[in-house]
């Protein structure tokens, strides 16, 4: 299925979870946070949160700023 991760289209297996998508995006699990369709997904729920086709995922981390 096709999902958007950080604005880019990714082709993922059916029944992919947030944890799988984070790995597919090449983002480190540590120091990151995930929003799925504009809602925070706590880390503890990454492995049990299934994605649906067209899901918009943002994988964020701390950068220099402010």
């Amino acid at each position: 299925m096709r999902v958007l991760i950080n604005g880019r289209a990714h082709e993922l297996a059916e029944s992919c979870t947030v944890a799988g998508a984070v790995a597919a995006a090449g983002a480190p699990a540590r120091g990151t946070a995930v929003a799925l369709d504009g809602q925070l997904v706590p880390r503890a729920e990454w492995t049990r949160t299934e994605l649906t086709p067209g899901a918009r995922l943002e994988v964020l981390t701390a950068v220099q700023g402010g």
Binding site: N6, G7, G31, V59, L60, T61, A62, V63, Q64, G66
Partner: peptide, 26 residues
């Protein structure tokens, strides 16, 4: 201060390691 940005475009993972090393709170 630090900002939050997309993990794959920022090249930013280093900043938290740096702060930890320097003992500076984020």
């Amino acid at each position: 201060t630090v900002s939050l940005r997309r993990a794959d475009t920022s090249g930013g993972p280093g900043v938290l390691d740096l702060l930890r090393r320097c003992g500076v709170g984020a």
